[in-house]
Amino acid sequence: MTVAGDLAHDHDHDLDANPALDPLDRRLVLATQNGLPLLPRPYHHLAEQLGIPPDEVIERLRRMLANGLIRRIGAVPNHYAIGYTANGMSVWDVPDARIDELGAQIGAIDFVTHCYRRPRRLPAWPYNLFAMVHGASRAEVQRKVAVIAGILGPDCRAHDVLFSTRLLKKTGLRIG
């Protein structure tokens, strides 16, 4: 299966124009995949490591942000530590013809942290819309899921919520 083929989104037209990572970009990815240096001049520090001018580090990061290679530069909070101890993956079976409109509505809800269309795997899995909902308790997640159900109304043919009960592994992305 090719996952790249699944990414033919409307907003991904720039993907074709997007050249593959050049060797220097790749070194920059490798140098920052564990995080940005916690030093007053982090980009200067990277520049020294890579043997290029600091402006070029900044320019390359700016370009990768612009073309989507970098989604954002920022912090990834641990949901548990910031008070969201319940994590529910709500999943919905909605008509294919309506999913983009409905997905946009659900994705815009402030408590929905991720919202995706994914394939059904019949008969085991009839759901095509996934919305992650975090809360301080299961009851809070369930209240939020009820709000989603209300918005979907009769377009929701079936749904489920899968709560994470145990984190079995979590490592960052590693390339190289």
């Binding site: 920052t32 995080g35 940005l36 990768m64 530069i73 909070p77």
Partner: peptide
């Protein structure tokens, strides 16, 4: 509290 700080690829 943070699992990571930096560019998210």
């Amino acid at each position: 509290v943070l699992t990571r700080f930096g560019p998210l690829f």
